[in-house]
Design a binder for these strands. Structure first.
Lengths: 192, 192
DNA sequence: AGCATTACTGGACATCATGTCCAATATCAT
DNA sequence: ATGATATTGGACATGATGTCCAGTAATGCT
């Protein structure tokens, strides 16, 4: 067997489990989903589940990591300049969420606001990087602004994903930018 | 027994359970806390727990409702005019969180962002009410702005509660207002 | 095409938390 | 003091978790 290649059965099982997790999470929320549920929906033996993942969280984490890798790869190309007159991260993010809506609704939709820490942390890092370009020397202000923008972003995204939106991605991004950018600019650029 | 009065034992038990929930939530996060843990910490029989609350969530909900009632009562007095040059809700909220830091850290601190829906919903309502005063006719814009401000508020609050803050409540509120207000004003007041 | 490797399966098992119920005991209000 | 009410510990059924194993199926390599 070649080093990097994956047994077809393994790939199949993991795919089935991942899809089942998304479906069930969308239906009932992540907390309510059990390993039994997942295996039932995926039509995979429960003991098989445990040969792949130690628990439910590991499955989710794997799915997210896989996904973030894809995002990273695709955003490596268009690394445009930060902060000309808006945020760079949000546009692609909304577009991408629109494209893979199923997954995003599963991971951050629903009544509960259970946004996985991996996603939140990764996004916060993106935001912080962009804001750093906006002349902030004050570490506290930078951090407050980062949290502010990140929290606002997820809440808007959450709403937009759930409200089966008439709004196209570009439009929700424009609204988000309008809300977010001027405040951040003022605070970070301000002398005092 | 008089109608409204509560048996001393009942009050004691509920208080012990509530405090135990706060402690354990602060230590391990809400999801990790079990009813057994709570009873152990509170030194209350497990069967007693179930005579008061059907489950863990009910205990939390009761604690939150109790708390929100107190907040409502105290904020009935100072119902100043909305939106002169900032938000009204956030200042008292930061001050109040500072005063009852233990509870707030338990309910919205820690690594996980498990903000109870009661609190999020209540805050969003406050925000929406204030923003409605800012000339919004467009329902969608109003909603986006509401979500935006609410999400930003909780994320900033979360950070501020965890980072054993050098920042006094008034200061974090000022930063929050700087970040939030101008964007909202522009978007909601804008003609198009 | 055959064969060794690897994955899947289903069932058994121990463990743990949940929620219900009851009879005995302690505490309360009056 | 005494009747009412709360608390208690223990028993019980249930459901989910995570581990383990021996039998069976699918795969990849040559």
């Amino acid at each position: 067997m070649a080093a990097g290649s994956i047994d077809r059965r393994v790939a199949r099982t993991r795919r089935l489990l991942r899809d089942a997790l998304f479906e069930l999470t969308t239906e009932n929320g992540y907390a309510a989903v059990t390993v039994e549920d997942i295996c039932g929906r995926a039509d995979v033996g429960r003991s098989t589940f445990y040969t792949h993942y130690p628990d439910k969280d590991a499955l989710r984490k794997a799915a997210i990591d896989e996904h973030l890798d894809a995002v990273r790869a695709e955003s490596d190309a268009g690394d445009s300049k930060p902060g000309a007159s808006g945020f760079v991260f949000s546009g692609p993010a909304f577009a991408h969420a629109d494209a893979t809506r199923t997954m995003h609704r599963a991971m951050m939709g629903g009544k509960t606001h259970e946004i996985p820490e991996e996603i939140r942390g990764w996004t916060a890092k993106q935001v912080r990087r962009e804001l750093t370009g906006m002349a902030g020397k004050d570490a506290i202000r930078l951090e407050v602004a980062t949290r502010f923008v990140t929290g606002a972003f997820f809440e808007v995204m959450h709403w937009w994903l759930d409200a089966d939106a008439e709004l196209p991605p570009a439009e929700i991004d424009r609204l988000f930018q309008t809300l977010a950018f001027e405040g951040a600019r003022r605070m970070l650029a301000a002398p005092e």
